[in-house]
Amino acid sequence: MTPLLEIENLRVSFPTTQGRIEVVKGVSFTLGRERLGIVGESGSGKSMTGRAILRLIRSPGEVTAERMMFDGTDLLSRSERAMRPLRGARMSMIMQDPKFSLNPVMTVGAQIAEAVRAHESVPRRALANRVREMLEAVRINDPDRVARMYPHEVSGGMGQRVMIAMMLIPRPDLLIADEPTSALDVSVQAQVLDLIDELIVNNGMGLLLISHDLNLVARYCDRILVMNSGEVVESCDAADLHAATHPYTRGLLAAIPRIDETRDVLPVLDRSAWSGT
């Protein structure tokens, strides 16, 4: 069986005043219908990796790769127009903050329906039913009322459920979730992640979960990539994370506070251990 996603030597660069800088420097991985987590500190290139897969990096940003295959088809050679049938329908992405990633002047129902209508023509009534079912699937009570609401009228947690509904309603095979809960209260983070997890597993989809939270990724993913300044420095099964060898990963692990904590001071990442500066 061909894997869902095959990435080889992915590079993303941007022009700056000091010349082009690479923010993703040769990332490679394959993803089946499984859950892969990408962790790394802020600015390590996680989001750019996710966006490059959907070919969302616009000029002057530049994406190159030796190989970028989705379900056996080449992503790199596709024109912008040829990407469109894939986006949403086959591969989708949950954005970070529902406050900014939902259109403020469209009802949430219309925005969810649009995700379907961009790819198939469905009669109005059937579409409304499908939106309702999807809102129910993301545990929204009273879906008809919520569908008529505008983004500013829904809470953060609800907004993120709307986002999930919007991205899953065309039944894609791959979901990229870029810090799907970092804009939410801690109390609703677990609910939203459980929901994503359940929908992914039930529909046999592939998940790329991007986060800076090692614990969270370890809990919800099968495999983990650790990124640091644009490179993958560690790749392991979630279960083997504690046995990680790269000093950066060890540093991240050591910085996680524990319930049975006896340390007074959490260690700070010692960059000299791996970057040589």
């Binding site: 903050d97 900014f100 990633s101 259109n103 649009e114 995700a115 790819h119 986002m163 065309p170």
Partner: peptide, 26 residues
């Protein structure tokens, strides 16, 4: 430059709709 424009593109919405509906409406 707003995030919800990216959202619309992620959904596979046509560029015409991205510009005249999503960006223009607000």
């Amino acid at each position: 430059g707003q995030e919800y424009i990216t959202t619309a593109r992620v959904k596979g919405v046509s560029e015409w709709r991205v510009i005249w509906v999503h960006a223009f409406a607000p």
